[in-house]
């Protein structure tokens, strides 16, 4: 099981964070993939999501990239 933004989802093996985020977008859980992501409270760089794999039990939280003008 993966907890994504406080909701439970099935764990999918051999999935990168980026692929999981894409899944969440396809399911309309999130609108935009430009995110600050923590996995088990650890902040993950947006460049690392393409190589880091998710593990069963991971707790993933996201927030939109902070921007301002």
């Amino acid at each position: 099981m993966i907890v994504f933004n406080n909701k439970a989802f099935d764990f999918v093996e051999n999935t990168t964070i980026a692929q999981f985020i894409e899944l969440m977008k396809d399911q309309l859980i999130i609108e935009n993939t430009a995110l600050l992501i923590t996995v088990n409270n650890q902040l993950i760089s947006p460049s690392a999501i393409y190589t880091k794999i998710i593990y069963d039990g991971d707790i993933i939280k996201t927030r939109y990239l902070p921007m301002g003008g």
């Binding site: 985020i21 935009n32 993939t33 430009a34 995110l35 947006p46 460049s47 393409y50 939109y64 990239l65 921007m67 301002g68 003008g69």
Partner: peptide, 11 residues
């Protein structure tokens, strides 16, 4: 940076 608010998720 406004564009990066979207592109940042597609590096």
């Amino acid at each position: 940076m406004m564009a990066m608010a979207t592109l940042g998720g597609q590096l």
